[in-house]
Structures are given as C-alpha cells and as structure tokens.
C-alpha cells in the first residue's frame, strides 16, 4: 500500500515537472515576446508598435547577459526577440541558440552606420543587428585632480588614493590593467594575466568603490575624483557637474554593442523582424536615444538628434576610437582564471 502511494506521488511529481517544463513552449500567435535589459526601451515605442501592427508586446527584462543566456537555454521558444551584447552573441551562435536574422525580411538595415556592422562576433550580420553601443571611459573631476589624466597608467598615481570608482565588472577592470601593460583586453596568456593581477593589486589602494549600477552619483556628489565608467554614465555626470571631463585614453577603449537577436524556435519570428524594422526607422530610433543616451548606431537617426548630443565625443566618438578600441571576446576556459584573479583582487 505504502509503495503504491509513493509510486503515485512520484508519478504525480513527474507529471508536475513535465507540465511546468511545458509552460515554456508558446504557440504562434499575434504576439511579440521581447526580452531586453531593464531601462532600455521607452514605453512610448512599445505602444506605438502595438498600435501600428496590432501585435501585442510582452516585455520581459533581465539585468545581465548571463541571466538572459540561462533563460534562453532553459526555455527555448519562450522569446521571439532578445537583446544580446557582442561577446554573448558569439556564445549564442556557438551554442546554436539563434535563428538567422533574415536581413532580406528587415527594412532599414541601410540606415545603420558601417562602424557597427559586420563585426568579428557576427561576420556578415547573419544572426544579429545593432541596437545600441557604447564604451567604457574615464570621467575626471577636474576640480579635485590637479594633474592631467591622459592614459590608463595615470590611475595608478598615488595622489588618487581612495578616490576612484570603477565598474564592478571583472572583465572591464582586468581590461584596465591589461591595457596599461599594452596588451589586449582578451588576453589568455597565463604570464600576462599574472602580471595584470599584480597591476590590479597596486591599483587597489586608489579604489574607493566598485559600482556598475550608478557610478555617476558618486562622481556628481564629489565622493570620488575619477571614474572608470560606461560612457552614458559619464555623460550624465557631466551634465550635472560641469567640472567633470571625459577622457578617452589613447591605448584604446573597451567597446560594447548590444544587438537584436532571434532565439531559436521563436514562435513569432516574423513579428520580431517587423519589430526590428520598426526600431530601425530613424524617428523611432531617435525616441530611444533621447531617453537613453548611449551611442546610436543608426546613422539616419543621427540627423534627427540634437546637435549638442551629436557633437558630444563621449557619446559619438570619432572613427579612430573604433579603430583603436576592442570588443570583449569570451575567453572560454580562461574565464575561470579571470574569476580567480578577481576574487583575489577583491580579497586583498
């Protein structure tokens, strides 16, 4: 009797598991399941798209690429369109998690600037199209720093003791040390990584805080004198506090680009293409960059954006920045080494 009860319970649990697993699969319908970073798409545009096409948009958000990857891996067919950063597009292609983007079914690809197309993570844009881009750069409060900061090595100056905020991001901060050594931010040589770890140890006394969410508030309030932050944060800090100057070291910047991708098995892939075409229209793209001052890869939209923003080198740097800068590349097994160096660095 008891055995049968246990068996029944086990069968029930199995059925529950299957049922829960089954929830992930969605049938094709007139919907668009959109998966994007939080604070990255104005509500206004979603409403406009719904009104124009009659497609209902389900907007889901995530707070890191890795979170997005985990959800797309465990629930295939759950999302029709996602936004993925450069190195993550590469991983998703390798993992066979993406549908081809289908350039012929998308209108407005010609609006995009050449700097943002055909990049190493997706040659020929078979799987992705650019959404927004940016860099990590230095923001310097000139009223608090009495020497010139021009290159990454200047951050190691003892005069900056306990006065720098850096991104709470292991690859970004490791990149800082690697660039100082004249190496690539995607270095995998153990000897070079060890040297970079020593550089980081020497930098630690100068770091006041690690903050990826809102380092601008530390810059604006004068809590720190220098920040190694995302460009949009530096630009917003500059608007609030005119003493803040943006510095783009000549060794080259850490570049990033977020891209539209269509996950494998997307039930409404056609709606996803409709949405990308909608977003590529200059007037819509402009609305997006008005709300979120990242670099807009849409060259046609640039003409609609106000001159002050367009001429701000922090947002729209000249071509040399793209030539010298580097995108993050997934370092595979070496990720574990990076993590260990990071743990050690924070532990000191």
């Amino acid at each position: 009797m008891r055995m049968r009860k246990t068996a029944a319970l086990a069968a029930f649990l199995l059925a529950m598991g299957l049922a829960l697993g089954g929830c992930g699969k969605k049938e094709a319908s007139n919907e668009l399941n959109l998966f994007n970073w939080s604070e990255y798409l104005p509500q206004e545009l979603i409403e406009k798209f719904e009104e124009e096409t009659g497609v209902r948009v389900n907007y889901n958000t995530y707070s890191s690429n890795e979170e997005m990857l985990a959800k797309i891996m465990t629930a295939p067919g759950m999302y029709d369109i996602a936004v993925s950063t450069d190195y993550m597009v590469d991983i998703m292609i390798q993992q066979k998690l993406l549908e081809e983007i289908g350039l012929e079914g998308i209108e407005g690809v010609e609006n995009l600037g050449a700097n943002y197309l055909d990049l190493a993570f997706d040659p020929g844009n078979r799987y992705s199209l650019p959404y927004m881009a940016g860099t990590a750069l230095l923001a310097v409060n000139t009223s608090k720093v009495d020497f010139d900061i021009e290159e990454y090595a200047d951050l190691w100056n003892p005069a900056l003791e306990n006065s720098i905020v850096v991104l709470d991001d292991q690859r970004a901060v490791m990149g800082l040390a690697l660039k100082k050594l004249g190496k690539s931010i995607n270095e995998t040589d153990p000897g070079v990584l060890e040297a970079a770890a020593r550089e980081l140890a020497a930098l630690k006394p100068n770091i006041k805080a690690f903050d990826s969410d809102s380092p601008k508030s530390l810059l604006i309030s004068g809590e720190v004198s220098v920040g190694y932050v995302w460009n949009a944060e530096a630009v917003m800090a500059q608007k609030e506090n005119p003493d803040i100057k943006i510095v783009m070291p000549e060794e080259g910047l850490y570049l990033w680009q977020d891209n539209f991708v269509i996950p494998k098995g997307a039930p409404n892939a056609e709606n996803a293409r409709k949405f990308i075409s909608f977003m590529l229209r200059p007037e819509n793209s402009k609305i997006c960059s008005d709300s979120f001052p990242y670099t807009n890869p849409n060259a046609a939209a640039l003409e609609l954006i106000d001159e002050e923003t367009r001429n701000n080198p922090g947002i729209y740097p000249d071509d040399s920045v793209y030539a010298q800068g580097e995108f993050l590349v997934d370092v595979g097994e070496t990720t574990v080494v990076y993590d260990k160096i990071w743990t050690d660095f924070k532990q000191q």
Binding site: S64, E66, E67, L69, D168, D169, Q170, R171, I207, K208, A209, F210, D211, T335, V336, Y338, D339, W342, T343, K346, Q347
Partner: peptide, 21 residues
Amino acid sequence: GGGKHMIIGNLIKNQFLASRN
C-alpha cells in the same frame, strides 16, 4: 562597503553570472 570585499555571497553570485561556472 563599496564592493571592495569578496564574501561568500558575492563569490557564489559571480560563479552563476560573470564566470558562468
């Protein structure tokens, strides 16, 4: 603390996110 210390909670979080381990 400005994220300057590595404690177990951060270490676990990093393994599941940044390091995908």
